[in-house]
Amino acid sequence: MRADLDLETIVSELYSPLYRFAFALTRNETQAGDLTQETFLILTRQQAQVRDVTKIKSWLFTTLRREFLRGLRSQSSHPEVELKPEHQDLLVSDSAVSQTIDAGTVLEVLAKIEESYRMVLELFYLADLSYKEIAVTLDIPIGTVMSRLSRGKEQLRTLLAKTEPPNKNLPRPR
């Protein structure tokens, strides 16, 4: 029997990682906030359909990603409002840049990684999902998650080593 969802507790525990994930996808503070709000609103409307409370986290990240992709499709069907990557960067507010200058560097590096690897890395680092939860969220086999995490981290390490000044304490690529 499904216990009733304590939405307020779920919000307080998960709104920050969801926002970070949304920010990594949109690179825009306002859009990330809207996407996070929309995701929780969908949970409120569809909570009766959530059968397993332990999978709420994966469900939320899956929903957020789906909403982001829906928004992208909607933008591409309206080319006059299409946002190109360089324009998206300009939309990041000053406050977001100053707050996330280091995070911004990591996000820039992540953006250079092949999408199939990047998605897995973002869920691992930003959402703190386990490999099993990532598999559910992206609907891919567990073995694929592990393989993409491994290769994605290799790419990340190499790219960060090129970006970071040598005195930073990131491990060097081998």
Binding site: Y15, Y19, A24, E29, G33, D102, A103, V106, L126, L156
Partner: peptide
Amino acid sequence: DLDRSVQQKLAGIEPPADLQ
């Protein structure tokens, strides 16, 4: 070390104060 470093940096992405 890599994981810890990346996670620390990404934790710098703070949600807007009024989002919750």
